[in-house]
């Protein structure tokens, strides 16, 4: 029923993630694609807690938990050891650990072309600590540190990563798990630093009913609030859902109004932000 996606699960049932957590959905497919010959490096983020507490873990591959800013360098250390050649070394980090505190280590690792796959699951805030603003929080969103909505614009980590000219970079969405599976498989077939940035709606932080996690992920893509593309050989290739969305973006109103975090937000300001984003990505293609 899942086409050629293997049935084996490396994410165990009964983890500590919130109901409707799409980061765990993304991880489920990352691990299916990577398989048992893989190791996860996990900086501080929701995923730290999702594993469950000692002496149990919900993750079915070896995991090394590490300090917030250290994931990319730690993964490089594992990947550099001769004994780990041929193994998939995967960072699974949130947006705060990637876009903010971990960006220096990430930048250094890509520059060195460390043989790792760095996955950033992006729930657009420090969700683990109760929804504080991160560099990835979109304009207008209410967080506990932007209680009247974020006034400035989010940091575009994808363009920053691309400026390093990595061997492979892709965006993805938890609403498209088969796409995640394919992109992870492809990334792991390439030597060097790969970066996959996965949009992961968060019912607890974004304040929407848990059952709408997939729906909202798809809406983000259809409105042009999130793009699906791959970067290889210096070129961006848009994926079909984004090709369609850029031809005729869906109105953002439903997406905004579905989420408590945008309560009272200036929809026009968000709309022009989205339009600017669409114009930027069109220029890149």
């Amino acid at each position: 029923m899942l086409d050629d996606i293997p049935e084996e699960e490396y994410l165990y049932k009964g983890n500590t993630a919130c109901a409707g957590c799409t980061a765990m959905l993304a991880l489920r497919y990352i691990l299916k694609a990577a398989g048992p010959n893989s190791m996860i490096v996990n900086p501080a983020c929701c995923s730290t807690v999702c594993q469950g507490p000692y002496p149990k873990s919900a993750y079915g591959v070896p995991v090394l938990n590490i300090a917030f800013a250290a994931a990319a360098a730690t993964a490089d250390g594992i990947a550099s050891a001769e004994r780990n050649k041929g193994k998939n070394i995967i960072v699974f980090a949130g947006d705060g650990g990637t876009v903010d505190i971990g960006i220096q280590a990430l930048s250094g690792a890509i520059e060195r072309n460390a043989n790792i796959l760095y996955v950033c699951y992006d729930n657009e805030a420090y969700s683990n600590t109760g929804m504080q603003k991160s560099g990835s929080t979109p304009k207008g969103a209410i967080t506990t540190t932007t209680p009247t909505g974020r006034k400035d614009s989010k940091k575009d980590i994808d363009f920053i990563v691309m400026a390093h000219r990595p061997v492979y970079m892709a965006t993805a969405s938890s609403a498209y798990p088969k796409d995640i599976y394919k992109k992870v498989q492809k990334a792991l077939s390439i030597e060097g630093t790969k970066f996959i940035h996965i949009h992961c709606p968060c019912p607890s932080g974004w304040r929407y009913p848990t059952e709408r996690s997939i729906e909202l992920g798809k809406m983000a893509v259809k409105t042009g609030m999130w793009f699906l593309y791959e970067y290889e050989d210096g070129k961006i290739k848009l994926n079909p859902p984004t090709v369609a969305a850029l031809k005729k973006p869906a109105p953002i109103d439903d997406y905004i109004k579905s989420q408590g975090r945008f309560k009272g937000a200036n929809i026009d300001a968000i709309r022009s932000e989205v339009e600017e984003g669409i114009a930027r990505i069109k220029e890149m293609v």
Binding site: Y12, Y54, S57, A58
Partner: peptide, 12 residues
């Protein structure tokens, strides 16, 4: 050092 099991967070 934690072993993978179903129910790391108990019977969810």
């Amino acid at each position: 050092a934690s072993k993978p099991v179903n129910g790391a967070a108990g019977k969810t």
